[in-house]
Design a protein around this nucleic acid. Structure first.
Lengths: 211, 211
DNA sequence: TAGATTGTTAATCGATTAACAATC
DNA sequence: TAGATTGTTAATCGATTAACAATC
């Protein structure tokens, strides 16, 4: 049993944040940091920092602290950011295009390898290095290329049918911007949901309920 | 002391999800639902549903369940979605434009009233009903119009200076897509962060650590 | 009335924080 | 060695789940 079995989601969701802060410290040429100082910067507790890191191994040195560059690399490895998981973008509307252009996939463990849309008017348009393909070419592309994950940037109503095809093509990992409930339908998949409207509603609640 | 004091964030973040499912049930003409059934649909427990709802009041009826339409309206009210909070968009790049076009702000308690960008080339371009204004007009606009919140769709490096101006203009609510740590600088603000790259890294971790 | 299902209290579980011995 | 800070165990806190009396 490797040490990183059964890490709780609470811990996992904090890892990217550690990674970001460590990258930044490293850019500022900070070489060494204690859990106390890191906790200060990240607005958390030293206990939590040490507990979190010790889920994956002892990266520090007593009396000394943590090496920023080393810890950053360890977390990068834990997150798997050295991978180049092949992802296809489904839906090249406003939102899908923004995602494709805006994010540095390679730094995040991914590579965007294709992009599909059902709108014939979009066919052939460039999206960064990619060209928008017709939705109907999905099967052919996935037959000829390894595809690890799909990014769903289509409205909820359109998800069911495309998802069926993606699932049949063997794709089991999804970054889902729609409100379609993927895990309700397929239980053996990894789904990371981003619900922007939920986030905005939460902001609304908090504004509406200030003290 | 009103009942909705000190509701935990765990509960608050579930409210939008309840709202979405209830809207859907209502669209399907379901009139009444028990906590058990709602829990099934939402993949949670009946206990949690009842606990969550009872933070805000007793909306159900013993032996009967909950009226879908009534419960939906109650949650809408709790979330404050009947508001029309005035929001300005800062940054009309790929991402900001997608947000402006893609989201139905009015359904989410907001109204997008202006949009600013420092790129002179974008000046005057239409974004839905809005026209992109020059960044320098921010003060003038906020002087003449009520502005409740700002949506930050600019890179981290550009945030500090704009944020200072927004704060000085009295804006205390932020929907933040950048990696700038707003609360570290200003403690009396409401910040709702959306960190897309954190979400993608989490997906990477989960793919990298399957069983 | 009998059946169903809530509202709410109590029990459990998990996550966070505190404490401290180990050790660099 | 003395000081600092980790790794880890124990204590606390909060969130989830279970149970059941109240009641429609």
């Amino acid at each position: 049993m490797s040490k990183n079995d059964s890490i709780s989601m609470s811990v996992i969701r904090r890892l990217p944040r550690y990674y970001r802060f460590l990258c930044e410290l490293n850019d500022q040429n900070v070489e060494r940091i204690s859990s106390t100082k890191l906790a200060q910067i990240m607005n958390t507790t030293a206990s939590q920092v040490r507990q979190d890191l010790n889920c994956f191994g002892g990266f520090g040195q007593q009396g000394y602290g943590y090496s920023v560059a080393q810890l950053r690399d360890e977390i990068k490895k834990i997150l798997g950011l050295n991978n180049r998981y092949k992802a296809v973008l489904i839906g090249a509307g406003n939102f899908g295009s923004a995602i494709a252009n805006h994010l540095d996939f390679e730094r995040l463990g991914f590579e965007l390898v294709a992009c599909f849309d059902s709108d014939k008017e979009k066919l052939g348009i460039k999206l960064g290095e990619l060209t928008i393909s017709d939705d109907s070419q999905l099967e052919e592309f996935c037959g000829e290329n390894r595809v690890d994950a799909a990014i769903l940037c289509i409205p909820k109503g359109n998800v069911e049918s495309v998802l069926q095809r993606l699932y049949d093509l063997g794709i089991r990992n999804y970054w889902n911007f729609s409100h379609y409930d993927i895990t309700a339908k397929y239980s053996d998949v990894v789904v990371e949901n981003v619900h922007l409207s939920d986030s905005l509603m939460t902001l609304c609640y908090r504004m509406n309920n200030k003290e």
